[in-house]
Simulated assay, not measured.
Amino acid sequence: MSDASNSETPLRTIFEISLNGKTVSISTVGQAYRFLTNFSSVEWMEFRSLHADAVRWLQGAADNAILTVPATDAVRALFVKAKVL
């Protein structure tokens, strides 16, 4: 199993997120994985199921680039529900 946090596999879209007044671009599996796992679990508690799905899909996409479509969809669903986008 690959280390998802270091994966350079591109996602199907680039997410532009405003964080502390700065725009953060997330375009790879590794960037998305780090963004979702660097915050404490309390930050994502309200969206626990969507967060778990997104992390699981990103881990899979780190090993198999075919899974970038469902990984991108899972990340998008989480970001939309959390009103990050």
Score class of each variant (00 low, 15 high):
1 M>G: 11
1 M>I: 14
3 D>Y: 08
4 A>T: 00
5 S>A: 13
6 N>A: 15
6 N>V: 15
7 S>N: 04
8 E>K: 15
8 E>W: 09
13 T>P: 05
13 T>L: 04
13 T>K: 12
14 I>T: 15
14 I>N: 06
14 I>G: 01
17 I>T: 03
17 I>C: 00
17 I>Q: 01
17 I>H: 01
18 S>K: 13
19 L>Q: 13
19 L>F: 13
20 N>D: 12
20 N>S: 14
20 N>K: 14
22 K>L: 13
24 V>L: 12
25 S>H: 08
25 S>V: 07
25 S>C: 02
26 I>R: 04
27 S>K: 15
28 T>C: 00
28 T>H: 02
28 T>N: 03
28 T>P: 00
29 V>K: 02
29 V>E: 02
29 V>H: 00
31 Q>R: 07
32 A>N: 04
32 A>C: 02
32 A>T: 07
33 Y>G: 04
33 Y>R: 01
33 Y>W: 04
34 R>S: 07
35 F>K: 09
36 L>Q: 07
37 T>H: 01
37 T>D: 00
38 N>V: 11
38 N>G: 06
38 N>T: 15
38 N>P: 04
39 F>Y: 11
39 F>R: 14
40 S>D: 05
40 S>P: 04
42 V>M: 08
43 E>V: 15
44 W>Q: 10
45 M>V: 11
45 M>F: 08
46 E>K: 11
46 E>H: 07
47 F>C: 01
50 L>G: 03
50 L>Q: 09
51 H>G: 03
53 D>S: 10
53 D>Q: 11
53 D>E: 12
54 A>I: 08
54 A>K: 04
54 A>H: 00
54 A>C: 05
55 V>C: 06
56 R>S: 11
56 R>V: 09
56 R>N: 08
57 W>T: 14
57 W>V: 11
58 L>S: 06
59 Q>L: 07
61 A>C: 09
61 A>V: 12
61 A>T: 12
62 A>C: 05
62 A>Q: 06
63 D>H: 04
64 N>R: 06
64 N>Q: 05
64 N>W: 07
64 N>G: 01
65 A>Q: 10
66 I>W: 10
68 T>V: 10
68 T>F: 00
68 T>L: 02
71 A>M: 03
72 T>G: 00
72 T>Y: 03
75 V>A: 08
75 V>C: 06
77 A>C: 10
77 A>Y: 08
79 F>G: 09
79 F>V: 11
79 F>C: 05
80 V>C: 01
80 V>K: 06
80 V>P: 03
81 K>M: 12
81 K>I: 11
81 K>G: 10
82 A>S: 05
82 A>H: 01
82 A>E: 01
83 K>T: 13
83 K>A: 05
84 V>Q: 03
84 V>I: 14
84 V>K: 08
84 V>E: 00
85 L>D: 10
85 L>N: 10
85 L>I: 14
85 L>K: 08
